[in-house]
Design a protein around this nucleic acid. Structure first.
Lengths: 239, 239
DNA sequence: AATACAACCTGTCTTTTTGCAGAAATTTTT
DNA sequence: AAAAATTTCTGCAAAAAGACAGGTTGTATT
């Protein structure tokens, strides 16, 4: 199922079960629905760019997004992948700007709630605040785990980890059993923190050994257990 | 000023301005105070260990803590340093256990609030929930930044970054201008994601070049600007 | 002061990773 | 269908990082 057109979907009719706005009381849900804006982003568009002022928070109704940060070299790093029901950005302080970029990986329908609306919701909907807090707290733990892994893993391990991360974030295509996202070698390198050559080498080798299978642009995980075993010296809490 | 004894300090008399419990209404603050437990941890003690069940959240009233994660190799990684007013852990789900260890770096006075108490506070104190959410959201961004840096930096850059991180977390001693924490080469390596030998070499070299000065166990940052310039090809948003 | 213990420093060797360059394959454009 | 452009793959040399080992310094204890 892909995003079709720019038709607005009301919050109480939204089929995205993971959206946390749903934790608001019914009348506040209507309020949220009134205040929100919704937009269809085509593949490769930016949702926001580094330096843009933070006016509110984006909720992904349906789609795939990469959050990237670049340094003065121009070297990019993908710091997070986000899918249906995930949040982009955070409620900002006055004058705050994004330290990161967000780009769609495919056509995506994304809702936006401004700072004031969110504040109103937070003040009157404790369950909503609670779930949002738990979301950030969980993402923080995941990020810390990744921090640890990436500080200690070899390049091959990082790439395996990245493939499993891609799978756990976007899932498997029911039809062809491939990872439900297509990233270039360069993009995979930007997640794993290495270069496209290493990714190419490693993926080829994993393919030859039967751990994965390459079908065109698609990557199929053939032996998830075997891959996990290769990085088992790290406790895998988040896969 | 160091922690002296195990005398309990009531929340409304606590001098730690950064503690978020203060965002509760006065009567709820009294409730929190009644429910909390407070304990003096001696240097090197664990606050909690990996695998321990998560019953609540720790608030550091005064002290210094390292949060570490280890893998099956026995290799350790310090994933966060925490000081006065910082939170340790998160509100857990039933049956959840910690994926990390927390150890005190010096004598520390730490308050504990159990899950039910926190839940009650969250439901009735929107400002408290809001601030907690903002805290986690900010820590998440910091962690993502670190993620990016560490994925791309050389060993020397990571060590410089670590020294600046130590300084920004614990500050500078007013008397001798040294970084307000003493970590072994091994511990610094566990933050930077390298080994003690590299840390030793790098620190010696930075000392010779005048960027830092080593006085006994203490490390003095002599040329913060020079150090930052060495890693300026990365946007430094969190120092 | 002597001893023991731990932390720290430094040289050497080995392994891993990177960066470059060109070939091969794939996709897009004409 | 051919040409052009982009992406991916692979070999090789250089650089970076890691592991090991011996020596030094510092601290605590007796």
């Amino acid at each position: 199922m892909t995003v079709q057109n720019n038709e607005i979907i009301a919050c109480d009719e939204c089929k995205n079960g993971g959206c946390m706005i749903k934790f608001c009381h019914v009348d506040w849900l209507a309020f949220a629905n009134e205040k929100k804006t919704q937009k269809l982003f085509r593949k490769g568009q930016h949702v926001f760019l580094e330096g843009n002022p933070v006016f509110g928070v984006f909720f992904i109704q349906q789609g795939k997004v990469k959050v990237t940060a670049s340094n003065f070299n121009g070297k990019k790093q993908i710091v997070r992948l986000a899918g249906d029901g995930h949040i982009l950005g955070h409620r900002g302080y006055t004058g705050e700007t994004y330290p990161i970029d967000a780009f769609t990986l495919e056509d995506s329908c994304i809702c936006f709630f401004d700072n004031q609306t969110l504040y109103d919701l937070f003040m009157e909907n404790p369950m909503f605040s609670f779930e949002m807090m738990m979301f950030y707290s969980k993402e923080l733990r995941k990020s810390e785990q990744r921090n640890k892994f990436f500080a200690q893993m070899t390049v091959e391990e990082k790439i395996i980890f990245t493939l499993l991360y891609m799978e756990s974030t976007f899932g498997i295509n029911a039809l062809d059993k491939a990872i439900n996202v297509t990233l270039s070698r360069q993009e995979i390198a930007e997640i794993a923190g290495t270069n496209a050559e290493q990714v190419s080498r490693t993926i080829t080798s994993l393919n030859e050994k039967g751990f994965i299978r390459l079908v065109g642009k698609k990557i199929l995980i053939m032996d998830a257990e075997g891959l996990k075993k290769k990085i088992t010296r790290y406790r895998i809490g988040l896969l």
